[in-house]
Design a protein around this nucleic acid. Structure first.
Lengths: 340, 340
DNA sequence: GTAAATTCTGCATTCGATTGCATTATTCTT
DNA sequence: AAGAATAATGCAATCGAATGCAGAATTTAC
């Protein structure tokens, strides 16, 4: 019964102008006299007209859609990033379309195809590995691609990440200052640059302090394997009394194992540091010492890079690393004489 | 340098058929001979052709985009739901575009406009209140709208929620079976149907057990106010020894206040129950007794309703309530003789 | 006040598909 | 094997807006 799709033509008729005039009023950069603008705006308001973004996209070749590929949202880091990304892009007149991808190459390929089908103007890959073929496809199609929170090294692709190496190093310095007897490291998925960089920084930092890791297990960024990794590490008689866990979510699991399964006190028996500073890190139940990922800054930079690439058409490869501070909380208090 | 936008016409030329033939091969429901199909498929593959979804949308009037409005993603419940929704819609060939809305009417109105601009085929409003005007606009445009996790009562709008009343009631029965001295309730945002239904069920359940609430404060679904609410409730000399907190995230905060600020034991001094069963509820640090929201089922039903509305064009108003089980964990163990 | 420069405007085309219609090729009937 | 029924194909119009072009209106300059 009511208004069936108001088009620019309807508005044109009512305003007594041509369809092009209407289009010009709603297209920024186009010129129209004040009189026309007023007439059109009035008619448009009366009819409840708004330009059809899809039709516009067809002719301009810009969809104003950014595709976000994510493997999982059950690490708090991603929803927080998504929220910020969505808000930041909104400011630029863009919107986020979410594409969940499992970690299989096949699935990722399908997802990239789907994104291209929707003519996305840019792609943000959050911790999802795109093969170089796929990345190449995007480049060929002229679609800027940014890796968020994970880089593909040696592939010359744009990425925005935390400065994981620096963070790992700082954690080493911090833990070493406690002069623990033994230091442990629980690794994430070893294919991930985040994991590798954090560990590399950590090891180098320890070396600089004349220390090394006495025990290392792998938790692969998931709860189940992390439980096993923690149990393996701390069931040993001479277990570490200081441990760096590759990300916060794993750190929570480790803390649970220590306290609930092994009845060890954190930080009494073991001091523990994570990485990310996701919201639960501040919850009193965990009060996790960790290195903050400055999600806001990371998103900001990502948007900046994307917008630049979209508007200029040129996409210089950059690898931004955003350093974040060590946030000292209960799981590993500041050692004597510690200064930020 | 490489392929600049392969269109159906390019494929048609190469396959030696008309452009319409190409279209028919890629349009399900259209007919083409096997020979044509083969030729077209081959040419398409060689050129790397895929239909432009936007162009298709323009003529079919279906964008295959579902708009999801969310106010915040920092309650774990939403990312989990988003992930499931995205996956479920993918199966149907739809994709989710995320629209963040702050809680102001103005902002929500803007967001709805933006969604309409993108010609979304359906809207899911997750805990975001759309005024009846806006809901009416959607109806007028023929766009199905589902309220997810929150209903607008008295407005005759479709919603999919947990059976919050039943859940609240079950919690009452459970807590009453502990025969606590005093029972408290910490409310969420009172404008939310989730809050109201949970409380109503809880109160009715208590009444049925011959009990009532001795203390009630409001946490408004956010951490800061919840802290204050918990402190107010439990600083009193004769504070409750059993409390229902309107959702899990608030429950975590309350638990933190009890343990860390007030040095009360949970469940020793106070037993505590939440609602949602978000992932951290199972973490040993909290081990929260709670009622599960069956997100998977809720999403499933949402998708079913939407697809039905989209394909038939008719959108009967339904209010689905999905019941979820009480999950007993450490924060409130099973009372003697308790049977599911 | 007139010529030159500038700004507006409408016409018609275009973006990349889908689809009704008319025509031709195939298949089925008997 | 001929006619009827069905399937496949191409043509051309269409979806809703943007835009190059040429002419009309307005502004600027002197």
């Amino acid at each position: 019964m009511p208004n069936d799709k108001i088009t620019s033509l309807d508005v044109a008729k009512r305003a007594g102008v041509s369809q092009s005039a209407v289009s010009r009023v709603f297209t920024k950069g186009a010129s129209a006299s004040q009189k026309t603008i007023d007439k059109v705006r009035k008619a448009a308001k009366e009819l409840g007209y708004r330009p059809n973004v899809l039709a516009r996209s067809l002719i301009t070749g810009r969809s104003r859609i950014v595709g976000l590929v994510v493997a999982y949202l059950d690490n708090y880091f991603y929803p927080v990033a998504l929220q910020k990304l969505s808000n930041a892009l909104k400011e630029e007149g863009y919107h986020v379309m979410v594409f969940m991808a499992s970690d299989t190459t096949k699935d990722i390929e399908r997802v990239v195809d789907e994104m291209l089908d929707y003519q996305v103007d840019a792609i943000v890959a959050a911790s999802v590995p795109l093969s170089s073929d796929l990345a190449g496809r995007c480049r060929d199609e002229g679609i800027p691609l940014v890796f968020f929170n994970r880089s593909q090294d040696g592939e010359n692709l744009t990425s925005v990440t935390a400065d994981n190496y620096a963070g790992g190093k700082e954690i080493a310095r911090f833990l070493a200052a406690h002069h623990p007897e033994r230091i442990g490291y629980i690794a994430g998925f070893e294919g991930a640059s985040t994991q590798r960089d954090r560990e590399a920084g950590f090891l180098d930092g320890l070396k600089a302090a004349g220390r090394e890791v006495s025990s290392r297990t792998v938790g692969n960024f998931n709860a189940q394997e992390t439980r096993a990794a923690a149990l393996a590490m701390f069931s040993a008689p001479r277990h570490p009394d200081a441990v760096f866990v590759a990300n916060d979510h794993m750190a929570f699991t480790v803390m649970d194992v220590l306290r609930s399964d092994l009845h060890l006190s954190v930080p009494g028996d073991v001091i523990l540091v994570g990485y990310d500073d996701v919201p639960p890190a501040v919850w009193a139940g965990y009060s996790l010492t960790t290195v903050r990922q400055r999600t806001g800054r990371m998103v900001e930079e990502t948007v900046k890079v994307l917008m630049n690439a979209i508007t200029t058409g040129e996409a210089p490869v950059v690898n931004l690393k955003i350093a974040g501070p060590l946030i000292v909380r209960g799981s590993a208090p500041a050692p004597k004489g510690w200064t930020g």
